[in-house]
Design a binder for these strands. Structure first.
Lengths: 197, 197
DNA sequence: ATGAATAATGAATCACTATTCAAAATTAAA
DNA sequence: TTTAATTTTGAATAGTGATTCATTATTCAT
């Protein structure tokens, strides 16, 4: 019997996140990923079906973690809907602050995967979207959120805005410091731009 | 002397927009584009440097048009900053309503191009961003827009939100009708979500 | 008509890289 | 030790599809 030397699967996942972030998924070579992970090219195919599968697994892990974190916020009965939304965005930004490469991969690759009909994207992502819907609906019912707002539209509004701000931060962290982004973001979501004096 | 048979360059541009929208840039084949454009494969290389150049030219034309349309709004002295922002978003959505394939290409391919250091993306895009900055700054100075809002952050906030909503519309036009998106969008930008009763 | 001049063609090339797989290496039990 | 099971390897393969370019077609001026 031979036993596994360390966690090659995870090494590959981490290495590919770095490579994908640096040159983009399509320009990344499996050989480069293997080299970055200190693993033979063939080993990649022991742990993943193919190159695309690596990318899908990165997102699977990402959304699994985020979904679980969001779930506990969602279930918290001591805070109201707007506070939950605020905490969720906070958590979202924090998660990526810790891993700028993951942020880049999220920003650059997720949309294409989602729009590819051939692909089964992480179910945790859709469960996360469901949590978001519930929280906004809760806010509308309790009266803390404008009742004329469409829940589905708002979810995609907020997600798109976050995504693009993360992108700016990932590209120019000095020009777009995350705390400044967070402050502005929360204010924009809550009150919009109009100064009604 | 031989004269050009029709506008093959434009045929290729239109055909590639359809193909890119349907299967995505990376999975698109130059041969398919040529076929869709009723043109020989080699002809593509008469009008474009390579496959990537086609995509860049699609964006060049897109942003050239949008920039010029936005410019006239920006110069209009009869309306104030918030109205300009409203008109610009209106125009933005309208432009893509007329061409859902272009919307898909914009949503799916632009981020990657912008983040690729090797690529010179359309200068009109950056000029468009400058227009946006000026308008928001104008609003802050006149007092109609909250002064604590960071102009750069707001620009990317609004662009990201629009992009993601366009994406939803392009994928499920029935679930996300554009007029509903526009109404919600304008309200969210102006007043946010908090119902202060 | 004729022949420059330019436009258009598409089969052949050629580089590139994802994937495979037979062999080697490692470990643990017998 | 030896064997057997499992893991790892990386050179060879094989498919793909972007790009080239020699050839053909078309048009206009003469």
């Amino acid at each position: 019997m031979r036993i596994k030397e360390g966690d090659k699967r995870n090494d590959i996942l981490l290495a590919s996140t770095r490579i994908f972030a640096k040159v983009g998924y399509h320009k990344s070579k499996v050989a480069s990923i293997a080299e970055e992970a200190n693993v033979a090219t063939g080993s990649v195919y022991v742990y993943f079906k193919n190159k695309e599968d690596i990318l899908l697994q990165i997102f699977e892990e990402l959304w699994k973690k985020l979904y679980n974190e969001f779930k506990s916020i969602s279930l918290d009965t001591s805070i109201d809907s707007p506070q939950k939304i605020e905490q969720m965005t906070e958590l979202f930004f924090e998660h990526f602050t810790a891993d700028i490469d993951l942020a880049k991969v999220f920003v650059n690759e997720q949309t294409q995967l989602l729009n590819d009909q051939m692909i089964q994207f992480s179910r945790y992502y859709y469960k996360f979207l469901d949590l978001g819907r519930d929280i906004v609906e809760e806010g509308k019912l309790s009266g803390s959120i404008y009742s004329n707002i469409d829940v589905d539209i708002f979810r995609h509004f907020i997600l798109g805005a976050i995504r693009n701000l993360l992108n700016q931060w990932a590209v120019e962290p000095d020009k777009f410091p995350l705390d400044k982004i967070k402050t502005n973001f929360k204010s924009l979501i809550k009150h919009g731009i109009l100064n009604s004096k």
